[in-house]
Design a protein around this nucleic acid. Structure first.
Lengths: 214, 214
DNA sequence: CGCTTGATGATACGCTCGTATCACAATCGA
DNA sequence: TCGATTGTGATACGAGCGTATCATCAAGCG
């Protein structure tokens, strides 16, 4: 059988298998043997394409980040014209575990993030923390833009608010994954906060403003 | 040596040892042998007082909840007269990992919460989720009270807001534990949101209001 | 006093994990 | 054509885990 084979494709096949396990049985169940079985290959092959488990995890994390990024931009596009507001909405709702795909992604991501907490290997100079950092500054930028446009109150600190929104979304995600509430409820909580942040810019009162529901 | 010994004290000694490990090396390092060593007893003793590891974890979780509750009420008391506002502030800032003790507690708690995500044993009818639920309804009650007193805008939904604040705090805690930012910054983000929620009830404008820093 | 019983130590068992080793088949360059 | 290289299988190894077993030592009770 040993035809010359496409390494990248094989690695992807195995990496995806790991992600599938991570989002169903949890990352701690993603043992070498389990991944091999899920990918339909032998244990030896997993070792062959990823010399060590850490390399496998790292590659899978990269694939996951890829999918996550793709979902975020798809979510933004789906909201119509690209404005600061749609970017913020799209980004945050994309990473909230509401439908099947986002549950999958969030579960897997949480697994990796959890690994970060107590890995002596430091997960390759904590790659995990750079992703949220980028998201945060991106959000801050667009909140500031919305502020310029008068969609957001002037006394709002974009950086602090971006951090808060992201932390809120992560916290909501955890509560959904932990079974404390369902995705729809989490979505409602997030929408409430977002609606409170993005209000119309005409009036003097901050009460009775337009409530957004999508 | 076999004097008649106080079981509850021994169990506590061992349970605290587990918590100590959970908040330093992480819960996944809390093996039976490690706990025994940390507690300064033999492996056999750990087995003697807790027939199985799950029982040990459950007991330790109970101790942790105890300490957490104690810290929350201490934090509320430290804020002076007990009002709806001090309760909300005190509760949320107590569980945010800012000082050494809260880092310890939060780390340990996160470990257990993480275990919840993917334990087939379901951690004894998911005891973990009841605690946040109680906190949430408690917060909602006091936000509603503050609303009655005019300290909170009338269009705020107490339940949604309580959930959001708790999720925000949890998310911030995760980011601190994950090394994304330090406790002081997290505290600033939380304070910003709380200050925005509890505003003075006299004026017409929502800009330039009193910024709380403690 | 003696004997049951509570408390403790030493050690073993079975399992799973990541990783390593050895053998071998298919392919390709010369 | 043939040897070197690439891909794959079967299996072993050592460590760490939760748990179990067996023996023993000090009390308390009759």
């Amino acid at each position: 059988m040993p035809k010359r084979v496409d390494h990248e494709q094989r690695r992807r096949q195995i990496g995806e298998a790991l992600l599938r396990i991570a989002s169903t049985r949890g990352l701690q169940s993603a043992t070498m043997r389990e991944v091999a079985a899920e990918a339909g290959v032998s244990l030896r092959l997993v070792q062959y394409y990823f010399h060590t488990k850490e390399q496998l995890l790292l590659a899978a994390l990269a694939y996951l980040a890829e999918q996550l990024t793709e979902r975020v931009s798809a979510s933004i596009r789906a909201l119509g014209p690209v404005t600061a507001r749609t970017i913020v909405y799209g980004t945050l709702t994309a990473v909230l575990p509401t439908d099947e795909e986002s549950v999958r992604l969030t579960r897997a991501y949480t697994g990796f993030y959890t690994l970060l907490f107590s890995s002596e290997a430091e997960m390759a100079t904590r790659h995990g923390a750079t992703y949220p950092d980028k998201l945060e500054s991106l959000l801050a930028t667009h909140i500031a833009a919305a502020q310029e446009a008068g969609e957001v109150a002037a006394d709002v600190d974009p950086a602090l608010t971006a951090a808060a929104l992201l932390a809120l979304t992560n916290g909501l995600g955890s509560s959904v994954l932990g079974g404390q509430r369902d995705g729809a409820t989490a979505r409602r909580i997030l929408d409430d906060q977002l609606g409170r942040l993005f209000h119309v810019n005409d009036a003097n009162s901050d009460e009775g403003l337009v409530r957004r529901d999508e």
